[in-house]
């Protein structure tokens, strides 16, 4: 995974750096002191290298912790694994926010649309019932009118 590759690459870098800064080269640069104090030179060099390695490793660990890199590497590995059968290049931000936001908004619009369709249907059904009562009411009023007319004519 990425985490292992990251660690390996950094270790390789460190090894090569240390190799480049070999003791021979160190002693060669500090030849005058080396001639005077070879053992001290060696000890200074060893401490230098060890401290350098420690600092580099600590820094790398700090970067990993701060960026939560181990978790991110693992999750990216998983995502890449899931996409291994993908053929086409995947979507990428176009740089035009208005364009990119569209797809993110569409699910909510679709949800809103289906919600509106649902409540509209309910409202129409509700109105259907109300209309039926209204029509029944009109019929009843017409009947009452006829009854009144009939009673009136009977008296007439």
């Amino acid at each position: 995974g990425r985490a292992q590759v990251f660690a390996a690459v950094v270790d390789t870098f460190l090894e090569k750096l240390v190799a480049a800064g070999s003791y021979q080269r160190f002693a060669n640069c500090y030849r005058c002191f080396y001639k005077l104090q070879p053992e001290v030179t060696r000890s200074i060099y060893d401490q230098f290298i060890s401290q350098l390695q420690t600092s580099v490793k600590e820094e790398i660990q700090e970067v990993k912790d701060e960026g939560n890199l181990d978790m991110l590497f693992n999750s990216l590995d998983k995502i890449v694994e899931e996409a291994k059968n993908q053929e086409e290049p995947a979507w990428r931000p176009s740089g035009v926010p208005e364009e990119d936001v569209r797809s993110a908004v569409v699910p909510y619009l679709l949800k809103h649309r289906s919600y509106l369709q649902k409540v509209l249907k309910e409202k129409e059904e509700e109105n259907q019932k109300a209309a039926e009562s209204v029509l029944a009411g009109r019929k009843r009023i017409a009947e009452l009118q006829q009854l009144i007319q009939a009673r009136k004519q009977a008296w007439q």
């Binding site: 129409e124 109105n127 109300a130 209309a131 209204v134 029509l135 009023i141 009118q145 009144i148 007319q149």
Partner: peptide, 22 residues
């Protein structure tokens, strides 16, 4: 959906007014 019902609403004021004639 109920436009046909709404557009055929009787004039209830007139119906009540007709009772005056009764």
């Amino acid at each position: 959906s109920q436009a046909h019902v709404l557009s055929t609403k009787p004039n209830y004021q007139q119906i009540l007014a007709e009772q005056g004639e009764v």
